[in-house]
Design a protein around this nucleic acid. Sequence first.
DNA 1: TGACAATGAATCGTGCGCAATTAGATTGTG
DNA 2: CACAATCTAATTGCGCACGATTCATTGTCA
Lengths: 147, 147
Amino acid sequence: MTDPIPPPRLDDQLCFAVYAAAHAFGHAYRPHLEALGLTYPQYLVLLQLWERDDRSVRELGEGLFLDSGTLTPLLKRMEAAGLLTRQRDAQDARLVRIRLTERGLAMQEQVRGLRQAMACTLDAPQPELDSLREQLKRLAARLRGAG
Amino acid sequence: MTDPIPPPRLDDQLCFAVYAAAHAFGHAYRPHLEALGLTYPQYLVLLQLWERDDRSVRELGEGLFLDSGTLTPLLKRMEAAGLLTRQRDAQDARLVRIRLTERGLAMQEQVRGLRQAMACTLDAPQPELDSLREQLKRLAARLRGAG
DNA sequence: TGACAATGAATCGTGCGCAATTAGATTGTG
DNA sequence: CACAATCTAATTGCGCACGATTCATTGTCA
């Protein structure tokens, strides 16, 4: 009767382009992070803590869109690696406060090479990268808003 | 001596914007896919097979950037769900050919609601979405090229 | 033809991601 | 003060990801 309904093409899907780009980033970061003994989500945790230290598990999770089911074991591994400490809050014993150690702070210097390598790999004018980042933020906000 | 080196801000990182957008997509897709008994990577496998059926595990993996370590158990679950068949190639017994079942083909109709819901959620002019998709493709290509 | 390299899938171990549940602490209310 | 509602982490179970290894099969070349 009506149209034969062409199959949705994988390469036409915006969601797949985002998926593939995330994958490509992970692949590009991996060797650098591996040399530092970090995984990508662990790197994101450090980025947050460098910006503001001494956060609860929940605060960290809000920024990264992760819950305690993911963060608790991840943070325990980072604690075992000597990057941070996990300590119950004295005032409110429901909270576990995450704080950087010296080693965790020092890691900020270690990732400068990584950041430089990525900037080199991207090799695009900054305004272009800024524009793309803002487009992605708006896209994510729209997706979340309707969720 | 020199500059105090401001900490890299999470929100300024393009990689995090991509990560967050991928997360937002997954979150938006989840309820629709769950109603169909699918996960997101399983949906990607279907998208590939609808476009061209009868592929080897390796061919599928090339399109989705996944290896047999990920695909083998995933495809076994999809086989158990009656969506596809896994069969050794008669000519070359190293290959396992993946073929859609009737149910797997029919699923193409089932996801029309999902696709419509997403188009509605995105709620942006098509040229804008096309542009963003092409930018992401170029970004991913650049990241892969230097890997 | 008989080594031997190359290929493709499966397997294993580790680390996310997430929903659902549990346990414990805190807060609000009568 | 009692007690229910709320809040926070931790735990559990399942499904990806991915590197590394193993195994069977195929291709190649002396």
